[in-house]
Design a protein around this nucleic acid. Structure first.
Lengths: 219, 219
DNA sequence: TTTATTTGTTAGGTTACCCTAACTTTATAT
DNA sequence: ATATAAAGTTAGGGTAACCTAACAAATAAA
């Protein structure tokens, strides 16, 4: 059974591998906030345990086992977030930190019960997909708001970040999942978006924000 | 912040100290399933960190800090049990094992929210008292059923064990907290009890079982 | 293509837990 | 009161994570 550290390495590897299946030791270290020699040592352990493939000086890649295990940890994380939000009433800006700990609990019945109470959800409070029991994750290919053209209307489906500060910013702006956003204007010089949604008219969203909002065009 | 191992040592020390404030290294080791040298080393660490008082060859005792910390871990454990039982619908025989892990989560808001959702309970699904936020625990002085005289009627208030096998035995016998038990007969030679409760008439409970049922005389 | 930079590795340490084997101290029993 | 048993300690090891400093290999730039 994987240790907590192992699970955290696998999660990090999983999310890095989605962008690029060839993962460097350095970027993994940065992601996890540990030194390169630590990653180097740890990766050898993970290799010995069958989670990753690794040869010295070559990039790291996940084995099928590793991918599955990672997805199952992500599953536990996202189910926990959903539970904290929908059952316990926490705000979407609070759930990540707590789920970060809950995800390491070893109890299938506990997570199965969560799943059941939630009605077998397929996405978490930030719109990210919840892998199934076998570790299969649906990948939604939403666009970012920053890719949308003037005049189009979109629905907010998910977020690219679960960062607390970002989520609190969205709270302040009264932006939540499902909201319909109309792009009124795009400034050429800074790519900032002027949008309307709900009760809000002509709100300005920076390029940084627009790039973190995952949307689907509705008209 | 205490590690998980530290929290487990403190919990064990706390429950041992209730019977005898002078705790031996050996019994602590047995309770935790670790060797004497391991306990010896660990106790030195706990002493350095201010959780216990210790001098070589002398019995171990908890400091005030240690007692409070232990009680707070027990609080988290029992709140978790209550949550698993009342909110998530687990049986009282399932909750201990899961709570054993949840108790180590570091998140005050998480346990506060549990507490709130449960309506600030004062005891867990096995009738054990839940310490308050300051670490104060009420000690109930219930009698065991084995101390009750023939003809008396008692109410089952708590259990002396949260052992899964024991709880499943109680389930089978349809014995739950709050049930009124009338002692019909006590066998002299083996101290077994013949009792009636609910729909059940003249059920025989062994001395071993009777000693684990904590009751209050009602008539 | 040689240099500079980035990336990865080695060597040597640390802390928190855990172990067995062997020994010493304290407590118990005769 | 001495022998024996129980309790506690020391010595020596192990693993999983972490670290810094110094060096080597691979990649990118001049």
């Amino acid at each position: 059974m994987p240790t907590q550290a192992t699970e955290n390495y696998l999660k990090a590897l999983y999310s890095l591998h989605l962008k690029n299946p060839e993962i460097s030791l350095t970027e993994l270290g940065q992601r996890l906030g540990v030194s390169k020699p630590t990653v180097n040592e740890m990766i050898k352990r993970l290799e010995k345990e069958g989670w990753v493939m690794y040869e010295r000086y070559k990039p790291i890649s996940l084995t099928e086992e590793g991918k599955k295990m990672a997805a199952l940890v992500i599953r536990k994380h996202r189910l926990s977030e959903m539970f904290l939000s929908d059952i316990m009433g926490f705000g979407w800006e609070e759930v990540h930190q707590i789920a970060e700990q809950i995800e390491h609990l070893k109890s299938d019945i506990f997570f199965d019960r969560m799943d059941e109470m939630l009605g077998f959800p397929t996405s978490d409070p930030h719109g990210s997909p919840i892998p199934d029991r076998e570790g299969n994750m649906i990948k939604n290919n939403y666009k970012t708001l920053s890719q949308i053209k003037e005049g189009e209307t979109v629905e907010l489906k998910a977020l690219r970040s679960s960062d607390k500060e970002f989520l609190m910013y969205l709270n302040k702006k009264e932006i939540s999942l499902g909201v319909e956003i109309k792009v009124n204007n795009i400034e050429v010089f800074d790519n900032s978006f002027t949008v309307s949604y709900g009760e809000q008219v002509n709100v300005v969203l920076s390029q940084a924000v627009a790039a973190k909002l995952l949307v689907e065009v509705i008209k």
